[in-house]
């Protein structure tokens, strides 16, 4: 087994374990960890199974099979980032609506208080 594949295996196991640990300590929501877990498992599979790595590399014309793992990592990072951008957009939309709501409610509350006094 190449040293580079051993390294990749170790790194992927570390990623997988850290994500699980973060979930266990409630510092990461399962919802946002699925993509991490999925991508680290796929990359782990490619790092461990020489057969798969060489087969898929051959299929898409990669001369040096371990670089397939880099390619995969690159794809996964792009997907995860786009996913996060959609999450951020949704959150900023919600925080906008909440701020507007709070401002309107605060005005109503103050008017109510004045009416009572």
């Amino acid at each position: 087994m190449d040293l580079i594949l051993v390294t990749a295996t170790i790194v992927n196991i570390l990623i997988f374990v850290s994500v699980i640990e973060l979930i266990r300590r409630n510092r990461l929501k399962e919802k946002y960890s699925l993509l991490w877990l999925f991508s680290s498992l796929v990359m782990l599979w490619f790092s461990v199974s020489r057969k798969t790595l060489h087969y898929v590399s051959g299929l898409i014309g990669i001369q040096y099979p371990p670089s397939l793992i880099f390619l995969l990592a690159f794809f996964f990072l792009i997907i995860i980032n786009i996913h996060f951008s959609t999450v951020i957009s949704r959150l900023s939309d919600r925080s906008k609506t909440l701020s507007q709501e709070i401002a309107i409610l605060r005005e109503m509350l103050e008017r109510d208080k004045e009416a009572k006094e």
Partner: peptide, 15 residues
């Protein structure tokens, strides 16, 4: 109506 922080013209008008 006082927005809790600066949301920008679009969100202010929408409020």
């Amino acid at each position: 109506i006082t927005l809790p922080f600066n949301l920008g013209i679009g969100a202010a008008v929408q409020a």
